[in-house]
Measured scan of single mutants.
Amino acid sequence: EALDLGTCKAKKKNGEPCTQTVNLRDCEYCQYHVQAQYKKLSAKR
């Protein structure tokens, strides 16, 4: 099993862990959760 392949560390809205696979060398979170957090933070400017 590849060491750099894993699952997203974020949690879904219902509290369950996200099940998307990610490349851990790039980021610990999937694209969906990265974009969601970016939108959330950019709205606070």
Rank of each mutant, 00 (worst) to 15 (best):
Y38T: 09
R25T: 05
R25K: 13
K39G: 12
Y32K: 14
K9L: 05
E1W: 00
Q20N: 11
N14P: 01
G6R: 12
D4L: 03
A2G: 09
D4F: 03
D26P: 03
E28L: 07
R25E: 09
T21S: 11
E16S: 15
C30W: 00
L3I: 13
T21A: 09
L41P: 14
D4V: 04
H33V: 01
T19S: 12
L5M: 04
A10F: 06
K11C: 01
V34S: 12
T21K: 15
E16Q: 15
E16M: 12
E16A: 00
C8S: 01
L3Q: 12
K9Y: 01
T21M: 10
A43S: 12
Q31S: 10
T19G: 13
K12F: 06
C30G: 02
T19N: 10
Q20G: 12
V22W: 02
Q37K: 07
A36Q: 03
C18S: 01
E16T: 08
Q20V: 11
L41D: 15
Q31I: 03
P17C: 03
L41A: 13
L24R: 14
P17Q: 12
G15V: 02
C8Y: 01
K39I: 02
C18W: 01
A43N: 00
L41K: 09
G15R: 00
L41F: 05
T7G: 03
P17H: 15
H33R: 01
D4R: 02
K11S: 08
K9T: 08
D4T: 15
E28P: 15
Q35K: 06
E1V: 03
E1I: 00
K39V: 06
Y38E: 08
K40T: 07
G6L: 09
Q20L: 11
C8D: 02
A2E: 08
R25W: 02
A43Y: 15
K13T: 11
Q31L: 04
C8E: 02
T7V: 07
K9V: 07
Q35D: 13
K12L: 09
E16L: 04
G6P: 06
C27Q: 06
H33K: 03
L3G: 11
K40H: 05
K11D: 09
A2S: 07
H33D: 01
Q35P: 09
K13L: 07
C18N: 00
A43E: 15
Q31N: 08
C30P: 04
Q37W: 06
C27G: 15
A10H: 09
N14D: 00
G6V: 13
T21D: 09
Y29H: 13
Y29E: 07
C27E: 13
D4C: 03
L41S: 13
L5E: 10
N14A: 07
L24T: 08
K11I: 05
D26M: 07
Q35G: 13
K39H: 13
K13F: 06
K11F: 06
K12D: 10
T7S: 07
A36L: 08
H33L: 01
Q20M: 06
Q31A: 13
K11P: 12
A36S: 09
E28C: 10
C27K: 12
C18R: 01
L41R: 08
Y29S: 05
Q37F: 03
T21Q: 08
L5G: 05
S42F: 05
C18H: 00
E16K: 14
L24W: 05
L5A: 09
C30D: 02
Y38A: 14
E1R: 03
D26K: 12
C27H: 15
Q35A: 14
K12V: 10
D26F: 04
D4K: 12
A43I: 04
K40F: 04
L24Q: 12
E28S: 10
K13I: 13
A10V: 04
A2F: 05
L5H: 07
A43V: 06
C30T: 14
A36F: 07
L3M: 13
L5S: 10
G15L: 05
N23K: 10
K12A: 09
Q20I: 04
T7I: 08
N23M: 14
K40A: 15
N23I: 07
Q31T: 13
A43M: 04
D4H: 09
T7W: 05
C18I: 01
C27S: 13
P17S: 05
L24K: 11
A10C: 02
H33N: 02
Y29K: 08
E16F: 00
E16G: 05
K11W: 07
D4W: 00
A36K: 08
K13D: 15
T19C: 10
C8V: 00
L3R: 11
R25G: 08
L5R: 12
C30Y: 00
A36R: 09
D26V: 13
Y32F: 06
Y32V: 15
Y29N: 06
S42G: 12
K40M: 14
T19W: 06
C8M: 00
C27V: 14
Y29R: 06
Q37G: 14
Y32C: 10
Q31K: 14
Y29I: 08
S42Q: 13
A2M: 12
S42D: 15
K11A: 06
C27R: 05
H33P: 01
L41I: 09
L41C: 10
Q20R: 10
L5T: 13
C8F: 00
N23S: 10
G6I: 08
Q37D: 15
C18Y: 00
R25P: 12
A10Q: 01
A43R: 05
Y29W: 11
T21N: 07
T19Y: 07
L3H: 10
K12Y: 05
D4N: 04
Q31P: 08
E16R: 05
T19E: 08
K11T: 11
A36P: 15
V22K: 06
Y38G: 15
Q37T: 08
Y38D: 15
P17W: 02
V22E: 06
